[in-house]
Simulated assay, not measured.
Amino acid sequence: MADHYDVVIVGAGPAGLSAALNLARARRHVLLLDGNRPRNAATMVSHGFITRDGIAPHELRRLAREELAQYPEAEFQLATVRSVSRLDGAFAVDAKGVNGSPSRSVTAASVLVATGLKETLPALPSIRAFYGLGLFSCVECDGYEHSDRPLALIGETSDLAARALLIAQWSHNLIVFTNGVGRITDSQEAVLAARGVRVERREIADVVGERGVVSAVSLADGSAIAVEGGFVRPRWDAALDYVAELQLSTDGWGLLLTDADGRTSATGVYAAGDSTAPGPQQLIVAAGAGARVAAAINRDLIGIARA
């Protein structure tokens, strides 16, 4: 069947690309679908990927797609997946083409969810202008370049204190801005204070700076606190509407629950990358997860019992 695949992979970030490459090398017939809206589109350089430290994320994706194109077993297409449903012991995948690509309706023996996360930044007027230039979300990716600078951490989520402790590994001059709604308890604030981290609970008016370089955080009362860049904690959503019919199990953050090899709660459905349980959101970690789940998918398709 021309439109039946061993595996349909949804999402061509590092997890999906890595899985596609390894599955093609296992001679699996693979279709990789991607909507061409990567979460790190605003990021100019990425770090921590061995042999590729400092590469632009879009260049890393380009190189990976170029490698994948050498394998006739793999097919890549720009398309947004609208739904995945069960069909006669397999899966039906409906996708809408983007950027001139045709829409597709295909079937697959298995499906890999590798669509990552959708970000919603705090609602500050100028924050988008600094994101990826002077403000970042991945501490492991960009902490080193901000060592020993006076930094801001802006966020409104319940894990803000934990992220502040992580950033303090790189800078002892850190202020956490909760924008009046961040949930940092008194006991957490005491722990942060012991590390030299200050908590600023007043409402934020905006981020201040020029040409992507942050110079201060302006508060609603008219005061401003000088910083030299920093981090933001967006709200992350896995955006899994297209697999809603499969009723996959998720955790308290809405991320997919999987076993160690990427198997979800639904037989034949796998997940890799940032849409799974929390961890370092690094390109190399996602790529490794993609390779691991590819091995599991191949073995499951063969019927090899789990060790």
Rank of each mutant, 00 (worst) to 15 (best):
P150T: 01
R292H: 11
V293N: 02
E200W: 10
A238E: 02
D6T: 10
I9R: 04
Q247H: 12
A162I: 09
G180C: 08
R235E: 12
T185I: 11
G262T: 02
L301K: 13
L112E: 09
A239H: 11
S137T: 08
A289P: 04
L246A: 04
E59S: 00
A194E: 15
T264M: 13
A162Y: 05
L151Q: 00
R62Q: 08
M1F: 13
S110H: 08
A216V: 01
I204Y: 06
A64C: 00
S103E: 14
R163V: 07
R52S: 06
L63P: 03
L301G: 08
R104Q: 13
V207W: 07
G89P: 09
L255P: 07
R61Q: 12
I154K: 04
C141I: 00
G230R: 15
G180N: 09
C141M: 02
R27Y: 10
V176N: 01
A277W: 08
G100F: 11
I154D: 01
D34E: 09
L78Q: 10
P72C: 05
E203M: 07
S275G: 14
G155R: 05
L255Y: 12
G196E: 04
S187G: 08
R86C: 14
A205L: 06
S147V: 09
R201H: 15
A226E: 05
E210D: 05
I127G: 05
G288E: 04
E67W: 03
G11T: 04
A296Q: 15
L121N: 10
A224W: 05
T258L: 11
T178F: 01
I175G: 01
G288C: 03
I9Q: 07
G155S: 06
S18T: 03
A24M: 06
V7F: 12
A90T: 11
F177V: 12
A95M: 01
I302K: 14
L32M: 02
S85Q: 04
A41D: 04
D259H: 11
A162K: 05
A277Y: 06
Q77F: 02
L121W: 09
V243N: 00
A291N: 09
W236K: 10
S158F: 11
V232Y: 01
A277R: 15
H58Y: 07
A26D: 05
S265I: 14
R37T: 00
R306V: 10
D34Q: 08
A205D: 12
A239G: 07
V208S: 08
S105Q: 13
Q247C: 06
P278V: 10
V176R: 03
D159L: 08
